[in-house]
Nucleic acid binder design. Structure first.
Length: 592
RNA sequence: GGGCGUGUAGCAUAGCUGGAUAAUGCAUCGGCCUCCUAAGCCGAAGACCGCGGGUUCAAAUCCUGCCGCGCCCGCCA
């Protein structure tokens, strides 16, 4: 709890100095208490006692006695070698209500921290609809974007469009050479396009891609392979005509994919095409520089690599950046892209699947060789299905479009049951918000480096521990405020009212809510700086839970008259809930 | 085979820059709607924190060895 820490750290330092403690090491040991019944901040005195050859239990007591009274401190206790400091709740309430807890803006583009951050995420190959696995990138990435903005950083969200190379070439070839009939014949026996998505280009066009992949795997595909190879080669040498053909093939697919993301509330500030760096010559210049390095090596056919083993890379040490025919590789272009990105922003973050770990290492080390900074990377593990790995090829996938439909339908049936008086239009709007929020939250709440098994029943569970639980607390807060207005209260003047904190009842639910609010921005900072959005998801769950406890213990509106203190607390919590929810893509409803 | 990651109640997870009685949800069992929306609240039960060693006053957390799972080890993207 930084609020309290800032207030009492010097006091503790003075008490420690009196006891003979030198140095600052204790500052790292001063940490939030594990349990709020013990306190808000705790200092384990064991190493300090050792330094002084004293008994830790006695030392803790000595320090506790030394700490002079301070308005922020409610209680200081020495327990079994720990120094426990509890905030004074009236002081804390005063802090919380006097604007010491910053309410950020997850859509803000102006920086209050002065940090400029470029976050590249998703960047999926535009060859087919998002399945739940690919969408983890987009959901984590977009949450990180929003949280950075909420924190006060100036963020640019960027999609790197893979507009060249084999995957797009296969798609372009298929569209140029296969008729609809051929595609259907090739894919006979497989599920067709869900009629719900007919006309959506990512769902339609992916069949051409799938058919081409199948045909390529068959025997007499030599000529086709050569033709695709020619296209790949041409694109990698910046052949404008071929690149235009590629773009015509992938753009509608990409648009379809972006429609899905947009339903999830995900959008981008900029799109940068991979081919740009081939066309403008950056890649050629880069390859020239790399081939002049002392760790440069060359294969018999002229292919170029860096021996990163000489820089400490373990495992496969040769990093190839140029083919025998002189063309660049994906990773080479990625390096050129990063050099460009470093001209755009002070901080770079990439969101990548765990399959890119080696590549990320190679790109990072090469950037270092070039005297460039290394980007931060948020790696995430894959989402699998109970039946195993997700694979478009095997038809073992859950499309995000289907999940969102299903989630909305499920939410709608819950709303209809719980709120029989709602109009159908209203039901559908609530259901859409609940569905999208639940889908996002289920992915955000899990640590990125943890594998994740997608289960329908979990994705569609709307109880405690899920997004609707948080949404529900928010609607409660909103509803209370609305009731106060309906009762004729002048909210603005109540919110501006000076509270006499010395004379307030402090039930448990209120105390816990104040503490949770006091921690809010500490957690946000941690989630942002460690790239762990799930920590903030947990905080929102805590906040919603604490709000429910407060709502239980503190009646805000009693006989038509609002309690000004409680209403101020409620409004602070509501605002933090609202912006916090938006920070991870949960939609704050006023009614549900 | 090598590299990286992961293993926590029946299930799904949090905690991992070392600190006290390991936290939350689902499922199970019990209680709460004449009172601001019960998608809620209160309570019970449930854990050799994968296994073995080590470091430490203190280990789920750090080191090490095994075991299980995932990803990577194209002149693919």
């Amino acid at each position: 709890m930084k609020l309290l820490r800032d207030e009492v750290e010097e006091l503790i330092g003075q008490a420690l100095a009196k006891s003979g403690i030198t140095g600052d090491n204790w500052r790292n040991m001063l940490a939030p208490s594990r349990d709020t019944s013990q306190g808000d901040l705790s200092l384990p005195c064991f190493p300090l006692a050792k330094q002084l050859s004293k008994n830790p239990i006695e030392l803790a007591q000595t320090i506790a006695d030394e700490i002079s009274s301070h308005p922020a401190i409610g209680q200081v206790l020495a327990v079994g070698g720990y120094l426990n400091i509890k905030a004074d709740m009236n002081w804390l309430a005063q802090q919380v209500l006097s604007g010491k807890v910053r309410v950020g803006d997850p859509f803000g583009s102006l920086s209050s921290t002065g940090r400029k951050v470029l976050i590249e995420h998703t960047s999926a190959n535009p060859n087919g609809p998002f399945h739940v696995g690919r969408a983890r990138n987009a959901i984590l990435g977009d949450s990180l974007v929003r949280l950075h903005r909420l924190f006060g950083n100036e963020v640019r969200a960027e999609y790197y469009v893979d507009d060249m190379g084999k995957q797009v070439a296969v798609l372009a070839w298929a569209l140029a050479n296969l008729s609809e009939q051929q595609v259907e014949e090739t894919l006979v026996g497989r599920d067709g396009v869900n009629p719900r998505w007919s006309g959506k280009a990512d769902h339609e066009t992916v069949r051409w891609y799938q058919a081409a992949q199948k045909i390529r795997g068959e025997e007499d595909a030599q000529a086709i392979e050569e033709e695709i190879g020619r296209l790949v080669h041409a694109s990698e040498h910046g052949d404008q005509e071929v690149l235009q053909q590629f773009e015509a093939a992938y753009q509608p697919v990409l648009d379809g994919m972006l429609t899905t993301l947009s339903r999830l509330g995900i959008d981008f500030d900029t799109f940068t095409k991979e081919s740009e760096f081939v066309i403008n010559g950056d890649v050629a210049k880069l390859m020239q520089r790399l081939s002049e390095m002392e760790i440069y090596g060359e294969a018999d056919n002229g292919a170029g690599y860096l021996d990163l083993g000489q820089r400490g890379l373990k495992g496969k040490t040769e990093f190839f950046f140029r083919r025998g025919d002189g063309s660049s590789l994906y990773a080479t272009r990625d390096i050129a892209y990063h050099m460009w990105k470093w001209q755009q922003s002070d901080e770079l973050i990439n969101v990548l699947g765990e399959d890119h770990k080696l590549q990320g290492k190679q790109v990072g080390m090469t950037l270092q060789e070039l005297g460039q900074k290394v980007p931060e990377i948020m790696f995430y593990s894959f989402i699998k299905l109970p039946e195993g790995k997700m694979s478009t090829r095997k038809g073992n996938v859950v499309f995000m479009d289907d999940l969102l439909e299903e989630a909305q339908a499920q939410a709608a049936s819950v709303v209809r049951e719980l709120r029989p008086d709602y109009q159908e239009q209203q039901v559908l709007e609530i259901a859409e918000a609940v569905g999208v929020s639940a889908v996002r939250f289920n992915i955000v709440k899990v640590s990125p480096d943890k594998g994740f098994t997608f289960r329908w029943e979990e994705a569609l569970a709307f109880e405690a521990g899920s997004a609707p639980f948080i949404m529900y607390s928010h609607t409660r807060a909103h509803s209370v405020m609305k009731r106060c207005i309906e009762a004729g209260a002048d909210i603005d003047s109540i919110l501006a009212e000076e509270i006499d904190y010395s004379n307030q009842e402090m039930p448990n639910g209120l105390v816990e809510l104040l503490r949770t609010i006091a921690r809010h921005n500490d957690v946000l900072g941690k989630a942002v700086n460690l790239r762990k959005p799930h920590l903030f998801a947990t905080q929102l769950l805590d906040l919603a839970n604490a709000y429910n406890g407060f709502y239980r213990d503190c009646h805000i509106l009693v006989e038509g008259v609002p309690n000004p203190f409680y209403l101020q607390v409620s409004e602070t919590a509501r605002n933090l809930l609202r912006t916090g929810m938006q920070g991870i893509g949960i939609i704050p409803l006023e009614q549900m």
